[in-house]
């Protein structure tokens, strides 16, 4: 069995299983902790607040947009770019079709892939440079923040190298890094990809009962 076969085969499936089970365990653990019961008579709905809280924090409030525009540009550039690449890069569509789902959808043309990849890279680099240069972010960042950023960067970079699918070594490198990323994900702060729903939701529910969405 070649290295490529290992990283696309057994190692990928192990990594994917750790990713899924780990993420479920962690999110399930948070849900199992439950929230403190609130018996104060409400003026609004906690459930509606949960949803409103989740939606409201996708967009910045005008009062802060001027001060946080770098994060907005970098954050949305990186995240949107990453999701588009993940779901619409031609090799990903083919991989999901053949190995997992059994159906496919239209993939990005090459020019669009390059454009989106550039946006995603620029966003990630902006966020990381800010993390190492801005005094607040330097103070509060820890190793997990840097490892998560670098792993994601390397996955994206190797993915670009492997785009043509012409060299097995490049494809294997990309898949190996993907496997590492999947293994690291559930134990790291990358889990914010799932936990944000809970944190926004809890705050939204708490204050939703008070008729306001902070």
């Amino acid at each position: 069995m070649s290295f490529l076969q290992i990283v696309e085969g057994p190692l990928f499936w192990v990594a994917a299983a750790v990713f899924v089970l780990g993420a479920l365990w962690r999110v399930g653990g948070l849900i199992a902790m439950k929230r403190r019961r609130d018996i104060a008579p409400p003026t609004g709905s906690a459930a509606a607040g949960f949803i409103r809280g989740n939606l409201r924090h996708f967009l910045p409030r005008a009062a802060f947009a001027r001060r946080t525009w770098i994060h907005l540009v970098g954050g949305y550039g990186f995240h949107l770019g990453l999701f588009v690449l993940l779901l619409f890069a031609a090799p990903h569509v083919a991989f999901l079709d053949k190995r997992i789902l059994g159906f496919s959808w239209p993939a990005l043309p090459r020019w669009a892939f390059i454009l989106v990849a550039e946006i995603a890279f620029a966003g990630l680099i902006i966020l990381w440079v800010r993390r190492i240069s801005e005094p607040v972010m330097r103070l509060i960042s820890d190793a997990d923040d840097h490892v998560g950023s670098w792993l994601t960067f390397l996955v994206m970079l190797s993915g670009c190298f492997a785009l043509q699918q012409s060299h097995d070594a490049l494809r294997a490198t990309h898949m190996f890094l993907v496997d590492i990323w999947l293994l690291y994900f559930p134990f790291s702060r990358l889990m914010h990809a799932f936990t944000f729903v809970l944190s926004r939701g809890h705050t939204g529910a708490t204050y939703g009962r008070r008729g306001i969405t902070p």
Binding site: M33, K34, I140, T195, S199
Partner: peptide, 17 residues
């Protein structure tokens, strides 16, 4: 630390905003 507080601790990405 209930589920709400735990979710806060788990989701902070240290962006400093």
């Amino acid at each position: 630390t209930d589920g709400a507080v735990a979710s806060y601790f788990e989701s902070c990405v240290h962006c400093g905003e």
